[in-house]
């Protein structure tokens, strides 16, 4: 297990956002976490990467306890999060945005190498290197956010609703890219509301309901589960 949470709990004041979430991510697999609005999906990712402090439970990364570690240390160790809502730098060009992803890398050549790799994966970004991030379309911005995270060569990539607010054809495109990443051997924990697409490409899936894991299993099996179909796949 490269990433694992054990009975993870998070409280925001009186709001109990997570009431004990345990999940496992195997190296080289794509695991998805689906659930309704406010189920606690984003909170789970934030607690893993240290943006919120868990009130209980533990997080393990490569079998080491990383609970409550500061974010920047986890990023340096190989955890990257693409947060909900893109968070790119709109006034900087695509190239500058990507280079910021490799901000902590001192080796110029390594930086260029990664830039080339990422551009190969996202040719649309390669064509727009000198365009301001803010002038990209929503889908392109999302790709830029993912590409920037990939510049860090993460061991585990955490993605928070990459398809949020995108037109169907762009959603399709994003998921194709994720499949491509997975084929390339990446380890991904994907949070999604688009359960249909997420279950289609994932190996394993968890269903979160009001801060608890309600269901889990291989993605194929969950896609055929009566409760999942009823609640998350629209009948």
């Amino acid at each position: 297990m490269v990433l694992e949470t054990e009975d993870l709990r998070v409280d925001y004041g009186h709001v109990r956002a997570l009431r004990g979430v345990s999940l496992k991510v195997r190296r080289g697999s794509l695991v998805t976490l689906i659930g309704a609005n406010g189920a606690g999906k984003s909170t789970t990712l934030k607690a893993i990467i240290g943006l919120v402090r868990p009130s209980g439970g533990r997080v393990f990364f490569e079998n080491r306890d990383i609970t409550g570690r500061p974010t920047h240390k986890l990023v340096a160790q190989g955890l990257s999060l693409v947060p909900e809502g893109r968070h790119i730098f709109p006034d900087l060009t695509v190239r500058e945005n990507l280079k910021l992803g490799a901000l902590l890398i001192r080796d110029r050549r390594e930086e260029e190498r990664r830039l080339a790799e990422v551009m190969e994966m996202f040719p649309r970004l390669g064509e727009r290197l000198n365009q301001k991030g803010g002038t990209l379309s929503g889908g392109e911005q999302q790709m830029l956010a993912i590409a920037r995270a990939l510049m860090q060569k993460p061991k585990v990539l955490l993605l928070d609703e990459p398809s949020l607010g995108l037109a169907p054809n762009l959603v399709q495109l994003i998921f194709e890219k994720l499949e491509e990443l997975k084929r390339g051997g990446a380890t991904i924990l994907l949070v999604e509301q688009n359960a249909y697409q997420a279950l289609r490409i994932a190996d394993y899936a968890y269903v979160l309901e009001t801060g608890r894991i309600a269901l889990e299993g291989p993605a194929k099996a969950l896609a055929e589960d009566r409760r999942v179909i009823e609640h998350y796949l629209g009948g």
Binding site: P70, T71, H72, V75, L81, V82, H87, I88, F89, L104
Partner: peptide
Amino acid sequence: RAVKAIREDEVAAAMLGLNT
């Protein structure tokens, strides 16, 4: 550059691995 990134977007800056 870190300081400006923090101004623009503190979450994004943290995701760049910066100790904001």
